[in-house]
């Protein structure tokens, strides 16, 4: 006669297991929630401190490499309004010449063609590369149709870069609280991964900016939209998801 035999124990395991049953103390939840709120308040009101910290890393890097670059300040939304003052690198980059222009067209085309030769199992790589080439195509086509003066600068790039990083950290810290701190993961893992992510936020963000500037300096500002729409958000999210997944895999238990 018995058909189903779900009982209390089964509710605790499968299929109704939820984090609620997996015992994370309410006190810890409350504590971390307060921490999150405090962090977000800090992140907003003490933004100049964060930008200074990022700027400091940038200047140390330029000194270390003895590059003829200077760390400056870029105001947002425009030079007259100091609503947000993000660090920037004062480099003058030559606007793209015809030669640069054509080499970009050829280079983009060549990469596009080469990715077509990739094996079927590398399809995501091909798609990813081509996806990131799309902004480049648009840039090339735009300046073919409207051959205006190229008036974009590293300062603009620094505004975009640092403000995006700034916003994304705020968004991700919310997910980090609910997705890692509230989950039943060993405390050591939680602390380690949280501090690693914070280190990457404080030092990785300016390093990545520095690298992007080096690339733009060596090539051309034509790459700016590709960086802004593709590579930078991807890398920053990648760091986060990497730490997040390591933390989760440490806490996950076979059902």
């Amino acid at each position: 006669m018995p058909l189903n035999n779900y009982s209390l124990e089964e509710r605790l395991v499968e299929p109704f297991r939820s984090i609620r049953w997996l015992a994370v103390t309410p006190l810890l939840k409350l504590f971390t929630f307060i921490c999150l709120v405090l962090f977000l308040v800090f992140w907003w009101f003490e933004r100049s401190m964060v930008f200074e910290c990022w700027g400091g890393t940038l200047s140390r890097l330029t000194h270390l490499l003895e590059l003829p670059w200077h760390v400056g300040i870029a105001q947002w939304p425009d030079p007259a309004h100091a609503y947000l003052a993000v660090p920037t690198l004062e480099i003058w980059i030559v606007p793209p010449s015809t030669w640069v222009w054509w080499s970009f067209v050829l280079g983009t085309g060549a990469v596009w063609m080469i990715t077509g030769r990739l094996k079927q199992s590398f399809l995501p790589v091909r798609t990813a590369v081509r996806f990131l080439l799309m902004p480049l195509w648009i840039t090339i086509v735009w300046f073919v149709v409207f051959p205006l003066k190229f008036n974009h600068t590293i300062e603009e790039w620094s505004r975009i870069y640092f403000l995006v990083s700034y916003g994304s950290v705020a968004i991700l810290s919310i997910i980090w609280t609910f997705g890692v701190l509230w989950f039943p993961i060993p405390l050591f893992t939680k602390l380690l991964m949280s501090s690693l992510w914070i280190i990457y936020t404080l030092f990785g963000v300016p390093v990545l900016f520095f690298i992007s500037c080096m690339l733009l300096n060596q090539t051309s500002l034509l790459l700016l939209p590709t960086f802004a729409l593709g590579i930078v958000p991807l890398v920053q999210l990648g760091w986060f998801v990497a730490f997040y997944s390591i933390a989760l895999s440490a806490g996950s238990k076979t059902r």
Binding site: L61, L64, L65, E66, L67, L196, Y200, G204, V207, L208, F210, I211, M214, V235, G238, W239, A242, F243, S245, I246, S249
Partner: peptide
Amino acid sequence: MSVVVFFLGLVMISLPFIPML
């Protein structure tokens, strides 16, 4: 020098992905 730093930076970026790899 700058090439070395460039690659060091790349290594730093890719460190978190090692467990995945």
